[in-house]
């Protein structure tokens, strides 16, 4: 464990909690892409199946349960509890165009052709593009609630911190995982446009609105 990975995990946890509280407190999931949240639930489910097979640490196991629990709670609130506030008309990204090719890629490019490893690879690839429906929805509505931009900021920051963690681990531990690194770079690049808007607008107290 190193400082980048720890702050990365805490940033990820913060994002997940911010979103959960936003929906719970405002009793509304307006502006939130349910499709992205389903993809995140799928990412955690396919990645954390090793909960059944191996124990790494109490931290690792407890965080995995928290991530999975919050992801499904968020999906439940969007599609069941606060269904009336779900903006389906703007959440129209065709996720099958992501899931199917990525499923194929996970079979072709992986570290080991075993079920758990292919599912892990699928989850790494999927996570790198899982935010696209959410970013697409914001570009369609032309704006985002400020709390949603904070959620996106911490979510984007977490993988950027993981990139630094991988540099650290390569240098000090000789560890590198090319699949995770390439997917992590793609994932972080997808947030660059948002990061620019977040820093130049939201941090200056303005509302995040895109030139529609």
């Amino acid at each position: 464990m190193n400082i980048f990975r720890l702050t990365g995990d805490l940033s990820h946890l913060a994002a997940i909690i911010i979103l959960l509280l936003k929906i719970w407190k405002t009793r509304s999931c307006a502006g939130i892409s349910g499709k992205s949240q389903i993809l995140f639930a799928l990412v955690f489910t396919t990645r954390y199946l090793d909960l059944l097979t191996s124990f790494i640490s109490l931290y690792n196991t407890s965080m995995k349960f928290i991530y999975i629990g919050c992801a499904y709670a968020t999906v439940y609130m969007i599609y069941a509890k606060f269904k009336a506030t779900y903006d389906g008309n703007h959440d129209t990204f065709r996720v099958e165009f992501l899931v199917v090719p990525i499923g194929g890629l996970a079979f072709l490019v992986n570290h080991d052709f075993s079920p758990l490893e292919i599912l892990w690879t699928f989850s790494i690839y999927l996570e790198s593009v899982a935010i696209l429906p959410q970013l697409f929805m914001i570009s369609k509505t032309g704006e985002a609630e400020t709390i949603t931009t904070h959620y996106l900021f911490f979510l984007g920051l977490y993988r950027a911190l993981y990139l630094m963690n991988w540099i650290w681990r390569f240098y000090f531990e000789g560890f590198f995982d090319m699949i995770a690194i390439v997917a992590g770079v793609v994932q972080t690049i997808l947030y660059c446009d948002f990061f620019y808007l977040y820093v130049t607008k939201v941090l200056k107290g303005k509302k995040l609105s895109l030139p529609a």
Binding site: H12, Y67, H111, D112, F170, G174, F175, M178
Partner: peptide, 10 residues
């Protein structure tokens, strides 16, 4: 530099 496939990260 060895590649490790035991995934110890979240």
């Amino acid at each position: 530099r060895q590649l490790i496939t035991s995934h110890d990260e979240l």
